[in-house]
Design a protein around this nucleic acid. Sequence first.
DNA 1: TCTATAGTTGACGTGCACGTCAACTTTTGG
DNA 2: CCAAAAGTTGACGTGCACGTCAACTATAGA
Lengths: 127, 127
Amino acid sequence: MKQTYSIKELAREFAVTPRTLRFYEDQGLVSPGRRGTTRVYTDRDRTRLKLALRGRRLGLSVEECKEIIDMYDPARPRNPRQLLRLCEKIREHRAALLDKVRDIEATLNAMDEVERRCLEELLAAAA
Amino acid sequence: MKQTYSIKELAREFAVTPRTLRFYEDQGLVSPGRRGTTRVYTDRDRTRLKLALRGRRLGLSVEECKEIIDMYDPARPRNPRQLLRLCEKIREHRAALLDKVRDIEATLNAMDEVERRCLEELLAAAA
DNA sequence: TCTATAGTTGACGTGCACGTCAACTTTTGG
DNA sequence: CCAAAAGTTGACGTGCACGTCAACTATAGA
């Protein structure tokens, strides 16, 4: 459990370029500290990056990732009204993710069907 | 089961603009016929659109959607070598989709955790 | 101390996926 | 028959997510 990371380290770990990490900083997704002029990423930055990249892979925009991650940030203090809003948002996001799961399932089913026909044809060709 | 569709009809059905459908045609994703100069979409076009938009929602590029849809097209004749390639590709795509499912599951778990803490806090605030 | 390596800030470029006119033609309902 | 609605082809604009220099600075190891 290292506490800090260089930009190169995190870029390599997450298979992105330093440019991407600087871009995400511009967008307010992470705010690494500085040692002199050099960026120093904490575990919190690393976690936010991990979540952001996960969101990106699922097709979310950087802005959407930021909003969600900010909202879910456990360090953020909240009043009951905000907590209710958060619960609401969670339900929305969950629904959106379940929609995606349905898309994936539909695609997987279609792929199974194609594969089945594919194997059938191979069998017929082998005869 | 209508056989043909206007550009407006399909745009409305899939909640995109006609511009998008023309763009997809430029990219070779669909090739509707013409009645005079007006586009006439068939059920095949409609199916390809449905698959394409599903792919888009999952974060694929239009080009990727096209490749996959072309490859899976049942109307396409294939020799055994191509069939084997297709099976290979299906395995790849399936693996990619399962990766996405894992991302979604991880996100859902994180959301459950946030919701749990959220409800706890609400409970504490109510006391 | 000197050099190689890593890091920094601009600033401009790029590919993608459309949006947004404009100018025009075509089709359809009254 | 004629107006309104729908459709067409360019062509340029836009927002996003970085890529790609350039020019410079900081730092660490021999």
